[in-house]
């Protein structure tokens, strides 16, 4: 244990040199690197904080924008629904009106068609009736029936109103031609006298009367007095009925 002054002083110098060396090559670089790293980390943290705040702000903006879009969407949706409702009501009304018109038209057409069918049925019925009646009349036509019809005609002629009787008389006088009496069967003398008496009573004693036969009349008489014709036979009656059936019974 001895103190060597050379070693003492040299160790002091050595240590001071070592302090300088380590300060220069260890502490300063390391602390500078640490400080630089710390500053960089703080800068990154600050940047991250700033970005986070910006992101939050953007998120808020986007949320607000989304909310506005949602409201706008709801408004537009409501408006669209209203427009759709209005348009649907209009279209429904137009469709109903169109349907009503179509229905009315169809109803009219149906009525017309039914009317035509009824008309055709009536005509067919009339024709059938006329044919049936014609066949019936053809079967029952006989001189006896004609006698009865002649009696009825004469009875009607006698009961003619005065005005019609005057018209017949005027027509017979103006024509100048004889009165033609057509029968389906040969008329007996008694009936011929009775007919002549009635016709002379109507047209005057000077009138000439012609008698002829036509089997087409089935039974009864057809008397032509000038322009007037008195239909008192089954054929003309059937024609009359047939015409009535063709005109809807008017």
């Amino acid at each position: 244990m001895q103190l060597d002054w050379s070693t003492f002083w040299l160790e002091i110098i050595n240590f001071l040199i070592l302090v300088w060396l380590l300060k220069r090559f260890l502490y300063k670089p390391v602390l500078a690197a640490v400080a630089q790293r710390r500053a960089a980390i703080e800068k990154q943290l600050a940047d991250a904080q700033t970005r986070q705040e910006e992101a939050k702000a953007l998120e808020g903006q986007y949320r607000n924008r989304l909310g506005e879009w949602e409201k706008e969407k709801e408004t537009l949706y409501t408006r669209l629904n209203e427009e759709i409702e209005v348009r649907r009501e209009k279209m429904t009304a137009a469709l109903e009106e169109s349907l009503s018109q179509e229905r009315e038209k169809a109803h009219v057409l149906e009525e017309r068609r039914l009317k035509e069918l009824q008309e055709k049925a009536r005509e067919a019925g009339g024709r059938a009736g006329v044919e049936f009646t014609a066949r019936l009349f053809a079967r029952i036509a006989s001189p006896e029936l004609e006698s009865k019809l002649t009696a009825v005609i004469l009875e009607d002629l006698r009961k003619l109103p005065e005005a019609q009787m005057a018209a017949l008389r005027a027509g017979s006088a103006s024509n100048g031609r004889p009165i033609r009496v057509t029968s389906a069967f040969p008329i007996s003398d008694v009936q011929r006298d009775a007919v002549s008496a009635v016709l002379k009573q109507i047209s005057g004693n000077g009138a000439t009367i012609e008698f002829c036969e036509d089997r087409g009349l089935l039974a009864g008489l057809r008397i032509s007095i000038g322009p007037w014709i008195v239909h008192g036979n089954l054929k003309d009656e059937l024609g009359f009925f047939s015409e009535m059936a063709g005109h809807g019974g008017e």
Partner: peptide
């Protein structure tokens, strides 16, 4: 002792010397 100290100084200097690398 001094020589050993010099050797230590050299050793420590070589150990501690290095580049200041970035972050």
């Amino acid at each position: 002792t001094v020589v050993t100290t010099w050797g230590l100084m050299l050793f420590l200097f070589l150990l501690c010397r290095g580049h200041n690398r970035g972050f």
